[in-house]
């Protein structure tokens, strides 16, 4: 389990999880036909890794669109990362958004607003 790569598709994001370096990325659009069928395995692997390693976490969200059922998954991931950070893990989340995409930016601000132990950065996509 050194990495998990899933290419992006019309309705699902590209997933790039590197369990060696602790670099994680999700990019593209997310409105899967069946959210659990798509996300259950990546989330399971990520949570398993979080619990079995102490490598610092760098998570990049580069989603240009996600629906409300995907948002539930994202909030769950962010909560898991924050829990690890509160246990002393070095955790950073970068939330990427297009310069003119105030909606993705606002959602990032909202999701990041409760984080105290995780470093949360908003990044403007080139």
């Amino acid at each position: 389990m050194s990495s998990l790569k899933i290419p992006g598709s019309t309705r699902t994001p590209e997933i790039d999880f590197n369990f060696e370096t602790g670099e994680f990325s999700m990019a593209g659009e997310s409105y899967p036909e069946d959210v659990r069928a798509f996300y259950d395995e990546p989330v399971r692997q990520f949570v398993g890794w979080l619990g079995s390693s102490d490598t610092p976490v760098n998570f990049d969200f580069r989603l240009v669109y996600f629906n409300s059922s995907s948002a539930r998954v994202l909030v769950g991931l962010i909560d898991q990362i924050e829990d690890a950070a509160r246990d002393g893990r070095a955790c950073r989340i970068r939330w990427h958004h297009a310069a003119d995409d105030e909606n993705i930016r606002e959602l990032g601000e909202e999701f990041g607003s409760d984080l105290s132990a995780t470093r949360f950065e908003l990044v403007v996509l080139e």
Binding site: Y31, Y65, N67, S68, D100, D101, E102, N103
Partner: peptide, 17 residues
């Protein structure tokens, strides 16, 4: 306006799903 286009797509997805 891209803001309008993004909002329309978002509403379309939620409603159609």
């Amino acid at each position: 306006d891209r803001r309008v286009a993004r909002s329309m797509f978002s509403v379309l997805v939620e409603q159609v799903q």
